[in-house]
Design a protein around this nucleic acid. Sequence first.
RNA 1: UCCCCGAUAGCUCAAUUGGUAGAGCGAGCGGCUGUUAACCGCUAGGUCGUAGGUUCGAGUCCUACUCGGGGAGCCA
Length: 502
Amino acid sequence: METTRTTIERLGDYVGQTVTLSGWVYNSRASGKIAFIILRDGTGNCQCILEKNEQAESYFAEMKKLPQESSVELTGVVSKEARATGGFELKVEHATLLQKAQDYPITPKPHGVDFLMKKRHLWFRSQRQWHILRIRATIIDEIRRFYNDRGYVLIDTPLFAPAAGEGSQTLFKVDYFGDPIYLAQTGQLYLEAACMAHRKVYCFGPTFRAEKSKTRRHLTEFWMVEPEIAFSDLDELISVAEEFVCSITQRVLKDHRAELIELGRNIEELEAVKAPFHRITYSEAADLLHSDKAKALLDNDLVEKTARVTELDAKIEELEAVAKGGGKQWQKDKAAAEAIGCREERTELREQITNIPRHMELAAGFEWGSDLGGSDETIISRLHDRPIFVTHYPKQVKAFYMRVDRDDPRVVQGFDLLASQGFGEIIGGSSREEDYDRLVARIKEEKLPLEDYEWYVDLRRYGSVPHGGFGLGVERTVSWLCGLKHIRETIPYPRMMGQCYP
RNA sequence: UCCCCGAUAGCUCAAUUGGUAGAGCGAGCGGCUGUUAACCGCUAGGUCGUAGGUUCGAGUCCUACUCGGGGAGCCA
């Protein structure tokens, strides 16, 4: 039987016509004489209807009880159908089974993270994961376009790097023909050299950190885009970063509004991501942490979360009474299922509540000269409705290459961008020290091996100019824009401390 | 490296002060022509993470370990 082959995303062009779809059984429901198969073909989902009649005799019985993720080809007439997910429906007239799947482990019911992470190779077939990875692809596309359209030259920096990074305890050591070498944690130093050749450059690729962090915002392998601009000052760098983040946000809103809503992202919060972002100095950030506003925020959190736990306690008790009571079986089951959801929320809240006093202490006891911690960043960003730049950090908490502020030598001209809604840092950048003597002095001060940096110092010998750049973490950006709780969902195969399978 | 929490059926979770291990989903069988995490009936499915200890009796209490989750530090 020869029919038109097409994909689900193009079904709108074929209403009333007979077409063939190929894909996987995402879910199915069947009664005696009718079956509904939700077909997933990689471009979308479509409900396919099979009726038990003479022409279906050869395949109906088999198709109606196919396990999840079995691969099939279905031929039928396309119709518009408001009741079906996706808006279209296929009334099947012919069906071919390609492979009957074995028991598929990921059911339409909830699963735990540990389980899903071990099934990552299957997990990203699920709707939610499918949406996230598509948004990631769009973000990466926008990143490339942004720089290509503005005359930046792509410079690929090495992944194998000699020790010359920012401190070797956070680097992965690799055996390089018998000598130690490290996986790059940034392309920046190489990029600085390239920007003296091409003026505006960027690199984009994976980067590696051996930090022993087990948190929802850390990966050991992640993607970072780093622009580097000659003849720039701090203000210009911040403006570029601002325009860049706005352009990514606008693009995602334009291309993925439906997916964002599906993911539960608050669209208004994203629409508020417009220039100008807030700009405060590190010293102002420190004052903010000591302020009543910060204390009130956490006090309020504590009250609200404690109240919610009490509310949940009562609700759980109530639901359990229903579950054990004399109602209909399905009512009891529903109550039991709801109780599980409430318990989950309660566990999470309790954990947050135990952390609040700690975070309050850290904020209130914050001392000028130390770096902002994760909880501090969360507080600062939650006190603002748009992303916020924090600038002029004390030089001792930042890398040796950052340009010392000529008016206040205690600080460097560096900046971080904290995403809104408490998602924390997504960009770190700075003006680089262009003065030969100052740079060498800083290298010595940090007790770094000067001989490893000879080539880097060369850049200050031959036509040194003010320059700088920044790095944006792709996964943290995806996490923020999609409103995800955990970074592990933002990359196809996450690599975290203690996790690298599959 | 440190702090907190957890580990019970293939999956998600229950088990009232220590007293005979349960439910839903999934799987198998049967029923149902418009389902939306479909529904209804039946069946199978367990060395309660590992090793010790307390006790007449331990899923439940104690100790150590393993693995996982969250957080601190560090960072994008």
